[in-house]
Design a protein around this nucleic acid. Structure first.
Lengths: 341, 341
DNA sequence: CTGAAAGCGCTTACAG
DNA sequence: CTGAAAGCGCTTACAG
């Protein structure tokens, strides 16, 4: 280090005050004289002083950093969620340490351990699994934590989630009305609450609306696009293939779409397709994709708002956001002749 | 804080050694006896000790954190870039502090100042503008910095960029071969190097291949999708509208696509469309989108590799990655009868 | 191989 | 309103 780094002592010296007074001015403590304030601020500006966040955090046990654990930043849903959370946090004076679990339990724990070591003021997490030791370590340290999108059974922290049930029910009803009786469901991983909830909702709605509950019609994916194309491939190879597909998230829907295209199937005519998650460009596909939509912007924003309440000693309640079906052309009837039985 | 936090002193006490020895064991210093190692590791594990990263950083002037400044995480190109950089960093033992400038100079500076205060070990940035005071402060402190995707004229740091020229040239040649003579170019912001470079390449290639250089055919967007739809709308309203559009990034291409769809234009027949950036699902559109492709995974990985070299005292050279045209159906001829003149 | 001691750069009771 | 002093939790020459 050739250029010695500027410390608060340099600022204090130049301003002709003690480090204590300089510290008070710079942290907005009102117990300062206008004269001191003027000189300290001038000195800090002239020296281009950037306070050492490590030293500040070490002493004050506040870092103004929140940890944001996302399961897969390349999934546009989580990219949007991260964006919404990050912008909300920034507006409130917090910077965001982003951990990308990459749908991988080991990486998730790696980042949670990092959050603990970095002494973040709080964590917003879209967790997977059943509560690893890293997650328990986080909670044992009473680090304020909010779950977003996903939860973990038996771990009682505030959360912001989507009520998938309504949207999925509408989707199944819609498919039934279109005359479908065999629907392929590409499920999310059962190690996630959303994977489990959406499958449960689907299974129940299928039964209620007279859609086949043949277990062969359920394919278990991992929320990533590759498993969507594998799933579509598998389902179409069944001896009694489905006439429509419902994918539990958008990357798997994209994967399924790629398979259908490769096979030369006409979406909405040869094969219906509905995706969970509304992504901007899904409406630009030809045909536009029918989706189950939920409000990702609100989800990210509210998660950070709950976290700030928690950090400030409050006891916020969990929030559940609605989901709803948006019907577009991809779910057109497979065979309009087949009436509901 | 009810539960007192565990420190290295607790670990040392339980292991029956000094904090110095505990520290040596935990940081892998070889000057330790097997006996000490065994007992310190056991104690740390039993107490679930997570070293305070602030304290460690304050003393050792290493944080093992790198700052990653992206211009817009919702842009899939940058989401992929962030993912690639983050995974590479993680494998090398660094965690990533993600700053999202949101294509906004003020937010960019906010994050750069944060990186300085957090004393990150290095920065990977996709910068915009001409070199703000925050950016200069970063460099004045000799914080290792690498530019990725974009650069700033007159600021000499290693970078990983794409040579847009070749891909754009191929795209223009292809459009000319298809008989197009009036092409609408939706440019990126001229405050970014990529916005400027791509426009320059386009203008030169248009001239070389006999495509109109009418300035009315250039629309200046901001790399976000809204400006793409505005741009398409504007260009189609010209008294002599273009027969094809070339968008300088993928969100603007998505925006243009939305406008074309709304107007009921058939892509690839009524209007050609080419996008800079290859996004997974662009090939799933109907018709699939012709794109100028470059290697985002390599870009993120190499950027972090260069940064690590820099952090370790090396003097890495900048890397320029190639771009190339991938022809799909969206750039089909506007009017196949028109021969090249 | 080990420990005592100093110090990284701040903030915060404490006393005035 | 201000300053001297202590201390946050580590690491690292230094001496042995």
């Amino acid at each position: 280090m050739t250029t010695r780094t500027i410390t608060i002592k340099d600022v204090a010296d130049m301003a002709g005050v003690s480090p204590a007074t300089a510290s008070r001015v710079l942290s907005g403590n009102p117990a300062t004289s206008p004269e001191s304030r003027k000189r300290v601020i001038a000195a800090a500006s002239q020296l281009d002083f950037h306070p050492n966040a490590q030293a500040r955090a070490l002493r004050s046990t506040r870092t103004n950093v929140i940890g944001l654990l996302m399961s897969d930043v390349r999934n546009p849903f989580f990219a949007d969620l991260a964006h919404s959370a990050e912008q909300t946090a920034l507006a409130e004076g917090f910077v965001t340490l982003l951990g990308n679990a990459n749908e991988n339990a080991v990486q998730q724990d790696r980042y949670l351990d990092t959050f603990i070591s970095q002494r973040v003021d709080g964590v917003v997490a879209a967790p997977e699994g059943m509560g690893s030791s890293s997650l328990r370590a986080l909670l044992a340290r009473e680090i304020p934590t909010v779950f977003v999108d996903r939860t973990i059974d038996g771990i009682d922290v505030p959360s912001v989630t989507t009520d998938s049930d309504n949207g999925i029910r509408q989707a199944v009803e819609h498919l039934a009305q279109q005359g479908h009786t065999r629907v392929g469901y590409i499920a999310g991983p059962q190690a996630t609450s959303t994977g489990r909830d959406r499958l449960r909702s689907y299974a129940k709605a299928a039964q209620d609306y007279g859609i086949s509950t043949d277990p062969a019609l359920i394919y278990f994916g991992d929320f990533q696009s590759r498993s969507g194309s594998d799933g579509a491939h598998h389902l179409l190879s069944l001896s009694q293939p489905p006439t429509a597909l419902l994918a539990a998230d958008s990357p798997m829907a994209v994967g399924a779409l790629a398979t259908l295209n490769r096979k030369g199937m006409r979406i909405g005519r040869d094969m219906g397709l509905i995706a969970f998650d509304d992504i901007e460009w899904f409406s630009l596909l030809d045909p536009p994709l029918t989706v189950i939509s939920h409000d990702v912007e609100a989800m990210g924003r509210i998660a950070v708002e709950l976290l700030l309440e928690l950090i400030n000693g409050g006891q916020p309640s969990s929030v559940v956001l609605p989901s709803e079906l948006i019907i577009r052309a991809s779910s057109g009837t497979a065979d309009p002749v087949v009436a509901r039985t």
